[in-house]
Amino acid sequence: MATPVLEKTEPAGSASAASPYITVTFRIRRFNPEVSAEATWQDFQIEIDPKERVLDGLHKIKWDLDGSLTFRRSCAHGICGSDAMRINGKNRLACKTLIKDINPEKPITIEPIKGLTVLKDLVVDMEPFFQAYRDVMPFLITKDTNEPTRERLQSPEDRERFDDTTKCILCAACTTSCPVFWNDGQYFGPAAIVNAHRFIFDSRDDAAEQRLEILNDKDGVWRCRTTFNCTDACPRGIEVTKAIAEVKRALITRRL
């Protein structure tokens, strides 16, 4: 669906020979039920330094061209998990993706992450995602009746055992890149399993059994078909598929 292309409003001089700026087209999936029940594509042309982030491009559009463009963001350097979106068909954080790394010659397509209800433009309803997270009991559970006065001891090796899954920033890039989740929103999804893994393999925790039982559910780990989309999508470099496999293995060995 064709929509008007907005003219650039970059500072004068940006076209000079020494300028690092290039012209890039952002093709953005727009949706605002206050305006129309249908989603449309809209093109924006901006002048941008290819070393800048996709998030910088979105800001240029919002700040200089169209204030109604809506997306979430906060930290702008990949640690808060606000701005997962589908960029050229892949889930990424807009603040961790540089223009030069995604072929700016062609229009850059930007859509909301898939499988969650779109509320406006790139903003989706994250509640089902967080509900799945909360359902795996993502907190330390210990049996000791009287609290120790000092810290619980944990060896560096035991600490290392679950290090990878502590890095999760709950951005949902993994879960919303998973074909199983797209087909059936009831599936817990990789992020919830990653966060269960973080406690199941923590030597201080005593509730692995309960969490494994939750994930043994029909909507649990067994739905995973090991497509590795989640691992590819994770901006924190977490080996998501491996974590899921370890949870599966724990379920099997537990039963043996």
Binding site: F139, L140, E147, E151, R152, L153, S155, P156, T166, D202
Partner: peptide
């Protein structure tokens, strides 16, 4: 730590 924070540890298992 009691709430579950995964601090780095010394060889003796302390924070």
């Amino acid at each position: 730590e009691k709430m579950g924070l995964p601090f780095n540890r010394t060889p003796d298992g302390l924070i």
